[in-house]
Design a protein around this nucleic acid. Structure first.
Lengths: 233, 233
DNA sequence: TAGATTGTTAATCGATTAACAATC
DNA sequence: TAGATTGTTAATCGATTAACAATC
């Protein structure tokens, strides 16, 4: 499984204590990062329920994981737990947000303002976790200049300028399949460092650009399959 | 990893030939099913490019998988390939759609017509793979009766009736976190067999109800993390 | 036929789980 | 202190990859 590369620069005190060479950095499996988001979500929920502290066993039960997995996952990033007590929710929320990078606001540009793009703009739920769509572009001159959700659509040729002047690092790609190639070229050229891709197309990007894919049709296919599987018994 | 249970009922000829007992059914890992959707998407793309036949090596390259993985994945479901030739795209598209269950039309009900729900309704991309949102419900009396995208919003109390009369098996859940519990009760009671959940909440459902989760905030968190990782090098 | 490519078995790799000393 | 729970190592499990006989 693909993995991220954590711990770079000079070896930390901890690494040196363990006598690990600089080059042997810790790999974080993608699956672990994905569960990290879930831990965050659940800890936020616990706080809403006025629960201050939780053990790996209980947290695991709520999420359907083993206690071992919870502890192992969290231990990738440091020693956050209190033996005999568990994890402090408020502390963990702050820690995980720091690790994920959502302890700050991320300005985002929407690329593609058709059906799906407008739908995504209408959904203000992104902002709850620190992502703010502050610019929107399209190739189609007939939509450029239109205002949706308080945002004026710009032409995609302005992308680089927008990205640089607004300090944008992340793009949401929501164009139809046939427009993907051109859009990706614009995005890469603009200096963007991450793409959330909603287009049902396999993207190949320079390795220094982050990529997360969401294909809603695919998710429904997975669901259809599982429904049929269940029905067969 | 969670897996689906395939092959039930009386043992197939094939199973008996292999002398496997009825109870030893083949498990399909979730990851395999997830890649199956990708194979489908890519084969459809190949057809658009007028490519009739593809080898596991080439298909793997396009998707970033090894040839072994492609062959192993597809072999879970039958012998579709032609030694010396590869896989016939048209045939595979039909086969995979049959396996996933998207060789038919799935009527879908949308539960929750707020921000996100309306956004999803506006996105007509579901229909391309055979999913049709034909009903929409909400708890809020003030939106009931409204028409969006040609669909009149009904009260959630009518869910069971809608599900039964329209033969709906799948619900898209798009309510805010605090409304999830009540909504899920309605859905379970209605006899729905699968939920595509957009609410950022861990659902626990009877095991005979299929579940796929999409949390857009979570996807952006994954992206933020990968951007930070890349930046660190 | 020779070349290409499959389906499948065995080998490898990585991720999950169990167990337990250390800690509060 | 006794009880609870962590972080981490070793054991287990499952998924991916390599290799190759069978096939077209």
């Amino acid at each position: 499984m693909a993995a991220y590369n954590i711990a770079s620069g000079p070896a930390s005190k901890f690494q040196r204590a363990l006598n690990k060479p600089d080059t042997e950095s810790t790999k974080i499996p993608k699956a672990v990062v994905s569960r990290l988001s879930l831990y965050l979500r659940e800890m936020q929920q616990l706080l809403r329920e006025n629960i201050a502290t939780i053990s790996s066993t209980k947290l695991g039960k709520r999420l359907g994981f083993t206690a071992s997995q919870v502890r192992k996952d969290l231990a990738y990033f440091g020693q956050f737990g209190y033996p005999g007590i568990g994890y402090k929710c408020e502390e963990m929320v702050a820690e995980i947000r720091k690790i994920l990078g959502t302890d700050r606001v991320w300005p985002v540009v929407l690329v593609g303002c058709g059906n799906l793009g407008q739908a995504l703009l209408g959904y203000r739920g992104f902002s709850t976790q620190g992502f703010q769509v502050i610019a929107a572009v399209d190739v189609d001159q007939s939509v450029v200049g239109q205002k949706i959700e308080g945002l004026t659509i710009k032409h995609i040729d302005e992308l680089t300028h927008l990205v640089e002047s607004l300090g944008i690092r992340v793009a949401i790609l929501a164009v139809p399949a046939k427009a993907v190639e051109a859009a990706v070229e614009h995005i890469v050229a603009s200096g963007i460092s991450g793409i959330l891709n909603f287009a049902p197309v396999t993207l190949s990007l320079p390795r220094n650009i982050g990529l997360v894919e969401v294909d809603l049709a695919r998710e429904l296919e997975q669901l259809a399959f599982s429904v049929l599987q269940n029905a067969e018994r």
